[in-house]
């Protein structure tokens, strides 16, 4: 087996990850922050929530730095895939390196998906499902994603219908 599969994701996917993760972290942070400041602004409660407030801001900044600045480039650098003649080869994972081989004759169906964030960047994600689990390739440009889906579907059609 080759050291690394050749193809990479579309670099724009880093921004998708940034927006997605940053958005979720911000939502959770806002929920915590607003409720904490409501408690502390209410004089009747008699609680002083300044320390938890400071803590939540620090944690928020830390999480944002990790998920928006540090992780996306590493994740992108570690995501490789290759569409071989009859199998799909994926290498990913930052700490746990994972190398998967999915023969196309075992593939039952392939889907492309495009959420609002992916549509914003003109990207698509492809999901390859076998009888025992699914694999997702996030963030390919539309032409590549559709070519991959069609090729996988064509090869999957040749497979016998037994499991």
């Amino acid at each position: 087996m080759k050291d690394l599969p050749q193809q990479r994701l579309n670099p724009k996917v880093k921004n998708v990850w940034r927006l997605n993760d940053g958005g979720w972290i911000t939502i959770v942070f806002l929920a915590v922050f607003v409720s904490l400041s409501l408690i502390s602004s209410d004089p009747a409660s008699g609680l002083n929530a300044t320390f938890p407030l400071q803590c939540s801001v620090v944690i928020y900044i830390l999480l944002m730095i990790i998920w928006v600045v540090i992780l996306p480039p590493i994740r992108f650098a570690r995501w490789h895939y290759e569409l071989n003649e009859d199998f799909l080869d994926i290498e990913k994972g930052i700490i746990w390196h994972e190398r998967s081989v999915i023969p196309f004759i075992r593939v039952q169906n392939t889907d492309t998906r495009q959420g609002p964030l992916l549509r914003l960047f003109n990207l698509m994600s492809v999901t390859v499902s076998t009888a025992a689990g699914r694999h997702e390739i996030p963030g390919l440009d539309i032409a590549t994603a559709e070519a991959l889906r069609d090729k996988a579907a064509e090869l999957a059609r040749l497979a016998r219908e037994d499991v």
């Binding site: 390196h97 994972e98 999915i102 076998t130 009888a131 025992a132 689990g133």
Partner: peptide
């Protein structure tokens, strides 16, 4: 075999070993 994968954590990578996983239906 539906698909197979290997999974390696940093310690395993250091020791030149890996966890092999074969998935059937």
């Amino acid at each position: 075999i539906q698909f197979g994968y290997t999974r390696t954590n940093p310690f395993q990578a250091h020791a030149n070993v890996t966890t092999i996983n074969a998935v059937t239906a």
